[in-house]
Design a protein around this nucleic acid. Structure first.
Lengths: 238, 238
DNA sequence: TGTGATTTGTTCGTATGTATG
DNA sequence: TCATACATACGAACAAATCAC
């Protein structure tokens, strides 16, 4: 008899992979226990674990000790382009967007903020911090910094509307576009993890960006921390 | 006497911060020892440590036990746009680019690869894995997948040149552009950490992208893991 | 609120087949 | 042929987290 070339664990991985791809296990579903799968496939638990490890590595599943192995939710696709609008982005991805205000304050700009907004260090800025949610689940922490000079009364509008776009529109900015975005990867601090309902040390995508009005005047300097597990940033060149 | 509102450690943090910002301590330099700094500022070593902790948290410095505290290299800026070329990107950032081939193999495409390359699942593809370095320091792990159908002999060219652009040019592709890119944040596995010379659990930027020729035909499906500590992805809208 | 059963995570040990030199 | 290394596979036991009652 010729030796079997493909390892048993690979066949199991393939079978479970197909089950997930074809929706027999849907996102959020719990897979059978390792013991059950081992019985069903007629192999040792270690062999099943080898297959499950590959699934987890590929991001198809995740395990919770004491609870089970679950199929991952597909990450929310968040397009980064010339026109970045939180509510529009999420609705386009088929999610229900909402926002939660954490703080609104007016203070002096630090050197980085002043530089980005083309203002002198120490000039007054409004700072808007909050949480972005999709289907009620937190996906991003943001901090938006607005120059107070052309927008003295922005805080009222931010407080009332909870929306950057709406507040800027009240201040006379009917349109704005993304001048640049920089993306880095960071680990969640304890407070970030708390807000994003994830664990300390979880991977985060940090974007730093500048929005400008059609004349090129800076209107918002923003930093956003996206939960790396729940969001994919997408750039489409067209 | 009015109470001093700003804590001593904050002043020290500010002073060291400025020293680094203004280049008195350059990237890679070792800061004076904690004891030396404590003497210089006339405070307890714990106070200096509080300031250093903030610097490290902000990513300006990192500590090596028994060695000292060092100024971090500024992250390499890696532009993502229509034309993404590794060597060009790094030279534009003032770094010396190089590549190291890890493996080249020809195998059947899995469903994801086939889908991205607009091929039937199971068609043959060439897979090119390697390491990208800037100034000799590893910054990214990549895996490029090429359809074998229009490029039967790509592996030779990849082996000889070690360059995607050069190999594709030999195969008759004089130009290609980035159709789309998706960015996620992940934690480094043990093997990834080994290759990228970082620690397991370090933050990584994973990009998944598709390059197409001027006619829109897919030529390369790639996944790249950038060291989050050493790379910033930048998108400029123009 | 606590207790025990369930489930994943980890670490031992054993054995076999294959590739390498 | 022998020694070595490596991947695969099975078995047993326990730790740690979770969940149902």
């Amino acid at each position: 008899m010729p030796p079997n070339r493909t390892p048993v664990w690979k066949s199991i991985h393939h079978a479970l992979s197909a089950d997930i791809a074809e929706g027999r296990y849907a996102p959020g579903d719990k897979l059978p226990t390792e013991a059950e799968l081992a019985r069903r496939f007629g192999v040792n638990r270690h062999t099943v674990r080898r297959a499950l490890a590959e699934l987890a590595e590929a991001g198809l599943t995740f395990a919770r000790r004491g609870a089970g192995v679950f199929v991952t939710q597909a990450p929310t696709e968040y397009p980064l382009g010339r026109r970045v609008r939180f509510h529009q982005n999420l609705r386009a991805a088929g999610r229900l967007p909402s926002r939660q205000t954490l703080s609104i304050e007016t203070r002096q700009a630090d050197s980085r903020e002043a530089g980005a907004l083309a203002r002198a260090p120490g000039e007054t800025v409004h700072v808007f911090e909050g949480l972005s949610l999709a289907d009620g689940q937190p996906i991003a922490l943001f901090r938006s910094v607005f120059p107070a000079r052309p927008f003295p009364d922005l805080t009222d509008a931010l407080e009332r509307t909870g929306s950057v776009t709406a507040a800027l529109r009240e201040a006379g900015v009917t349109d704005y576009i993304r001048a640049w975005t920089r993306v880095t990867a960071k680990l969640a601090t304890a407070t970030q993890a708390l807000h994003l309902q994830t664990r300390e040390g979880a991977p985060l995508l940090r974007t730093v960006s500048l929005n400008v009005d059609p004349d090129g005047q800076p209107v918002e300097y923003g930093r956003t921390w996206f939960s790396g597990d729940r969001v994919t940033l997408s750039l489409t060149e067209n």
